[in-house]
């Protein structure tokens, strides 16, 4: 497994953990899951700790030039495909959110009621969720191409 692939796995783990923590903070734990709160918190810290440690080791290896080249043309090509996919998703999602805000605004004015996505803080949650998903798409695309080949 190349270093960039390990970075991608770490990135997926970290994004999922931060996204999970964020979702739980905003919406709370599902009913019946309160008893597992300690386990979930422990898992969060374990994933963060392992990802941090792995990235630290990789950064040290990269800075000392030990273990050969850190990133080559194949890594850059895979990274560019990953950024492209994440960018397409991000643009599509932002356009959808903006269109939703405009439509919600028009409908709110017409009906006189405030619709859910017209609430600014709800839009903030949606946009943050989109950012997390874009990050997952980027790392997921990288892993896909590392596994399948270009």
């Amino acid at each position: 497994m190349s270093r960039k692939e390990i970075y991608a796995w770490c990135s997926i783990g970290l994004t999922l953990v931060i996204l999970g923590y964020y979702v739980i903070s905003v919406f709370g734990l599902p009913t019946g899951a309160e008893t597992y709160r300690e386990n979930i918190t422990g898992l969060f810290w374990k994933v963060i700790g392992v990802a941090f440690l792995v990235q630290l080791v990789l950064d040290v290896l990269n800075s000392t030039k030990l273990g050969g080249v850190a990133k080559d043309e194949r890594d850059k090509l895979i990274e560019s495909k990953a950024f492209r996919n994440a960018y397409y998703f991000l643009i599509a999602a932002v356009i959808a959110v903006v269109a939703n805000i405009l439509i919600s605004d028009l409908l709110s004015k017409a009906s006189g009621e405030q619709l859910m996505l017209a609430v600014p803080f709800m839009t903030f949650h949606v946009l943050l969720f989109v950012l997390f998903l874009a990050s997952l798409i980027k790392s997921g695309t990288q892993i896909f191409y590392y596994q399948r080949g270009l």
């Binding site: 190349s2 050969g68 990133k71 080559d72 043309e73 194949r74 890594d75 080949g149 270009l150």
Partner: peptide, 18 residues
Amino acid sequence: GVTRQTINAIEASRYSPS
């Protein structure tokens, strides 16, 4: 000047080098 994984991918015809 590349990673071992890239040489492996080229050998297995899973990557066409520049």
